[in-house]
């Protein structure tokens, strides 16, 4: 409890800014009362968001766990709404992170293949550079037709979007690995595979931080983009379904849920990368005290 209070106190400025933003939203909702369609305000105030909107998310509950769905004739309930958020979140997050992981691994391996040998460079470089130029979101329909509208298609799409970013990031970062470390490893008897694992990989990580953060953002955009078209579940599906009925308040809630998840994933990544980068000269650097 003491710890929690200390955390809040340490971040008091940020928390105040957040509260001010929420307040501004509320003021805006009372000043600007236009409606998209009758009964659906353009700027839904918090009193709507936390009552009607939250309850309405139970529309997307697909049933099970002895909690009947609205489609089965049950009334809207907060329990169904909560389960519905969890259910669709899990779908989206699984698609996102499985795709992200696969894209990161494949993109990194292909990126390293460019510097592995002359032959792997010839085979990999041009085709992947070519794939990289394709506009990501325009590829959604193709991925759906190829891989289907369910998980495989979404995961492949996220993997593709993240993979090409990782590829470009790795190719660039490997170029910047100081030759001295590679020479040192070679004279100490390391094989080429060992050099990639024990020298190239750790040496590129500081530079890859930016790429990884970027790919987290692209990953969210890709998974939502994929869910807009033809998915039967996921947070993107709720947004696109809401759009058909101009349910701006539901879209707003889903957007808030995104912010929540994204913040958590950035925080986890920050912790993790700080642990992995303890060795860098910049670790714990302060530009100016005060």
């Amino acid at each position: 409890m003491k710890w929690l209070i200390a955390q809040f106190w340490r971040r008091r400025i940020s928390i105040l800014v957040l509260l001010a933003m929420a307040g501004l939203w509320q003021i805006l909702s009372t000043i600007y009362t236009a409606e998209a369609v009758p009964g659906e305000p353009m700027v839904p105030g918090w009193q709507i968001v936390f009552s009607r909107t939250l309850l309405s998310l139970s529309d997307y509950w697909r049933g099970g766990l002895n909690v009947p769905s609205v489609a089965e004739g049950a009334p809207q309930s907060y329990l169904a709404a909560l389960l519905s958020i969890l259910d669709h979140s899990v779908d989206t997050i699984v698609r996102l992170y499985v795709g992200l992981l696969m894209g990161a691994i494949v993109g990194t391996l292909l990126g390293m293949a460019v510097s592995w040998s002359r032959w792997t460079r010839r085979i990999v470089d041009l085709p992947v550079q070519f794939l990289r130029t394709l506009p990501l979101l325009a590829m959604v329909p193709m991925f759906q037709l190829w891989f289907g509208i369910d998980f495989v298609g979404k995961i492949a799409f996220v993997g593709y979007g993240v993979g090409v970013i990782f590829f470009a990031g790795v190719v660039n970062a490997v170029k910047n690995v100081p030759q001295i470390y590679i020479d040192n490893a070679r004279t100490l008897g390391a094989s080429r595979l060992q050099i990639y694992r024990t020298v190239v990989l750790p040496a590129i990580f500081p530079e890859m931080r930016g790429t990884i953060l970027l790919s987290l953002g692209i990953g969210w955009a890709a998974v939502l983009g994929a869910e807009y078209l033809g998915a039967q579940s996921g947070l993107g599906y709720i947004i696109i379904y809401s759009e058909q009925f101009a349910y701006l308040d539901r879209m707003f809630v889903v957007a808030l849920i995104f912010v929540f998840y994204a913040s958590i994933s950035y925080a986890i990544f920050d912790r993790l990368s700080r642990l992995l980068l303890r060795w860098t000269p910049q670790a714990g650097r302060v530009v100016a005290h005060g």
Partner: peptide, 18 residues
């Protein structure tokens, strides 16, 4: 090719910082 029977100390710092 390089081999562990020939050790090398370089002018620049070659110690792996990680």
């Amino acid at each position: 090719q390089p081999g562990p029977e020939r050790g090398m100390v370089f002018q620049q710092d070659s110690v792996f910082p990680w």
